[in-house]
């Protein structure tokens, strides 16, 4: 198993090795030690490898991930799994701002809390947060799902497009053009599948409320100008 101790090995070597994995290569499990808050750890992965990071990471860990499964045994700094395409990223601790920002696919699981702007501008990613999320989460969310087992902060889903938000706890306030919507059977099914994929047990989909776009800002209307 390739092992990188970031207290001794430069980050460049880790990312270079991850980018150089040839199709069919045998080394499919990487371990990273002592990240101590380093930035850009395991970014731009393209191969279906498993990367286990022992410790907390800084900005943009697992950025633009495709196919890889990356697990952070610690907390993640701003922009974890930003613009993820596919694969899975799991944060055992908390995540800072911008978790899963602009993500286009794959699954991001945060076992602790996520700070502000979780899922900002999300474009197809699925995000499951076991704890709470901060303010401005799913701002301008275009597509994908954000599932929150705890509470949401201010201005949830501001300027939302078609991302679907499920919150089990309280929502401090909804952003412009975000409204609570009915949980229809298909939403229960989608949510149940996401919870299962994220390893959440003992929670019923009936405990969640769904939020989505009111679609009032989709085309300019003078009567909605106060929202601008």
């Amino acid at each position: 198993m390739p092992y990188f101790d970031l207290s001794e090995t430069p980050l460049r070597e880790l990312n270079r090795a991850l980018h150089a994995i040839a199709p069919g290569a045998n080394d499919r499990e990487f371990e990273v030690a002592n990240p101590r808050g380093s930035h850009a750890v395991a970014v731009g992965c393209q191969a279906p490898v498993a990367v286990t990071i022992k410790g907390s990471v800084g900005y943009y860990c697992a950025g633009m991930n495709s196919a890889a499964t990356i697990t952070v045994h610690g907390s993640a700094g701003p922009g974890v799994a930003e613009n993820m395409m596919s694969g899975t990223v799991i944060v055992e601790g908390d995540a800072s701002q911008y978790a899963g920002a602009t993500g286009r696919g794959g699954l991001l699981v945060i076992k602790g809390n996520a700070a502000s702007r979780c899922g900002i501008s999300m474009k197809g990613i699925d995000i499951v947060v076991h704890g709470d999320i901060g303010h401005m989460s799913a701002f301008m969310g275009q597509s994908g799902h954000l599932v929150v087992l705890g509470n949401a902060g201010d201005a949830l889903g501001d300027s939302l497009y078609e991302a679907k938000l499920f919150v089990r706890g309280t929502v401090k306030s909804l952003g412009a053009d975000c409204v609570e919507k009915e949980m229809r059977p298909e939403h229960h099914a989608v949510l149940a599948a996401l919870l299962e994929k994220a390893g959440v047990t003992g929670v019923e989909t009936t405990e969640f409320k769904r939020y989505g776009s009111a679609r009032k800002l989709y085309n300019f209307n003078i009567d909605n100008a106060d929202a601008y």
């Binding site: 808050g37 907390s56 800084g58 907390s75 700094g77 502000s116 901060g134």
Partner: peptide
């Protein structure tokens, strides 16, 4: 400003760590 700044503090692994609210 970043978590990195805190990693060398005594027993940081046992600390309550959070981001200040807006």
């Amino acid at each position: 400003s970043e978590y990195r700044a805190l990693v060398g503090l005594p027993c940081i692994d046992e600390a309550r760590i959070w981001e200040p609210e807006p």
